[in-house]
Nucleic acid binder design. Structure first.
Lengths: 194, 194
DNA sequence: AAAATTGGGTAACAGCGTTACCTCCGAGTT
DNA sequence: AACTCGGAGGTAACGCTGTTACCCAATTTT
């Protein structure tokens, strides 16, 4: 039952966007009354919270699927590409997760913690880059977050319409590569990022 | 009259957030009926469009105010810092501009064009870095957009709650510095970003 | 078997964006 | 100067939203 509600909510979100995500439509879509949603999720906020977590769970699975290549730097690149592909595949989900597409919702601390686990694969890949000497020693978690911010910035501007489609992919790659480059092992004497 | 409406709408947006930005509240706040808003702006979308443009106009002014330092690289850093400061000073505005805090609104092509002018100062600063030999030759507009994406990503994650306050400033600086570093003139033989 | 508790449907409330209707004020015409 | 006419603005309604008080049926407990 709970999964039926979530499935239909996700379907509405993906096919018609966040504006169509109303309690009445979800309820009528599963042939029930809105009361069920309130006993089950406590309100729209609880339902959106479930969608938020589901969105990051999907992102985590997408990242794990991309976590295959041998070379650690290639793996990191693949993860970044998978991040963008996942975001663009379901922009409505991305908006729920990062921009608050549902007006009132603010993720709780637990939800934010759960979201963080979506980037475990990225942290591992960065750590592998450090361990193999490709990256200089450093905090893998911190570097991963910076890569995330760069990727998120590029994707977010793309979804918002500021990056035209034909250049968005190139910019995404250039930006993530530029950030990655800053953490390369110091083989050439270039400056270190503070 | 038009400015009175916008002033009150901005006031509502800044002090109570996007959720309080309703046609009825704006109208009653200026002691008029909602009909005025519709004859003047054509609907909520037109009003939010005006707020969107105003937000980028304010950002542009904030960038111009920060555009003072002599050293081009310092100037670019100042612009980045001003960008973050401006975004954090009025997060509700930032949400209207980048995340679509008002459910239905999607900026028109003209609005996106107008938004772009907010980054003229950044493009100029990048061009100055190239002209003075600090940056390698390249497309200043393109580099500026990448810096923008990085800054936006860090600020956006900060506002969304993913970056705790005490580390957000450091991460913002590290990230923008890392991106800037990738475009430095090739004095040390480090690899070039493709 | 009777009683208590729980889950779900109905219908209502307040508030939202929007608009049809009407009034009324000011400008242009005769 | 009076009269008409056009458009700006207020009133009130429509259909929608999230939410909940009320009620009934069904299930579980004693």
């Amino acid at each position: 039952m709970r999964t039926a509600i979530l499935d239909h909510a996700i379907d509405l979100l993906v096919t018609e966007g966040a504006a169509a995500l109303t309690m009445r439509r979800i309820a009528s879509g599963i042939g029930a009354s809105t009361k069920v949603l309130y006993t089950m999720f406590g309100g729209k906020e609880g339902l959106v919270d479930a969608l938020y977590r589901e969105g990051f769970a999907r992102l985590r699975r997408a990242q794990q699927r991309a976590h295959r290549a041998e070379d650690p730097l290639t793996r990191l690149n693949d993860l970044a590409a998978a991040y963008r592909a996942h975001a663009l595949a379901e922009p409505a989900y991305y908006r729920v997760m990062f921009e608050q597409a549902v007006p009132g919702y603010q993720p709780s601390a637990e939800a934010l913690d759960a979201a963080e686990s979506a980037f475990d694969a990225s942290v591992e890949a960065v750590q592998a880059c450090i361990d193999s000497g490709v990256f200089a020693p450093g905090d893998a978690r911190e570097i991963s977050k910076l890569l995330w911010a760069a990727a998120h910035g590029a994707v977010s501007l793309e979804i918002a319409g500021h990056f035209p489609p034909e250049t968005a992919a190139r910019r995404f790659h250039t930006l993530t590569a530029a950030v990655g480059q800053a953490f390369l092992a110091d083989e050439h004497g270039q400056g270190r990022t503070s």
